[in-house]
Amino acid sequence: MDKLTTVEGRAYPFGMKNVDTDIVIPAHWLKTISRTGLGKGAFEVLRKEPGNVFDDPAYAGSPILIAGDNFGCGSSREHAAWALADLGIKVVIAPSFSDIFSGNAFKNGILTVVLPQAAVDRLMEVARTDPIHVDLDAQSVTTPFQDRFSFEIDPFRKHCLLGGLDEIGLTLGEADVIDRYEATQAQERPWIVPASAAAVA
């Protein structure tokens, strides 16, 4: 997973409240075999509306999404996080998020920033014309106009995002304890390796 330290760039001034994961990525995209390429299906229904922010060239490729209350509610599909990641989004800023979505976003290297509604409103305003700067280490969001908003984050998640550590990466970091377990198991329960696999090996 890529490290996430600072993110600077334009932001989609989206602002919609109660965006469920069906809006982020409709169900018919779930039969895919890939977690990349889902950006094409991201916000598919909204993108049928003229003047939507996602098809506005001014915001093309923005790494930040600003949304309303309760972003990512509904189905637990991990595809929602995959779709945003595929769209190039690294940070989502909103007054609140669904727990499941935050977890899925984190697993996929996306930072969710919770800020008060007034701060989100101000960032929406700035985003229409200027870039926004997110600093994870300092836990702040700043603008070229001296705005500075601080946010809270779980220390473990911060540590993982800063280091580019996904859960698998973290577990792999403990490979030595897994090695030790396997060595003990090979002594105590050598029969655990399937017979035909052992024959091949």
Binding site: M1, T32, I33, S34, R35, T36, E78, W82, D166, I168, G169, L172, I178, I192, V193, P194, A197, A198, A201
Partner: peptide, 22 residues
């Protein structure tokens, strides 16, 4: 499984114990 294998591929990881996998 497709997205899981894809995740491994993207991260350059391998299956730790293919012999325990079917």
């Amino acid at each position: 499984s497709p997205q899981a294998f894809e995740g491994l591929r993207l991260a350059g990881r391998k299956v730790r114990r293919p012999d325990l996998t079917l």
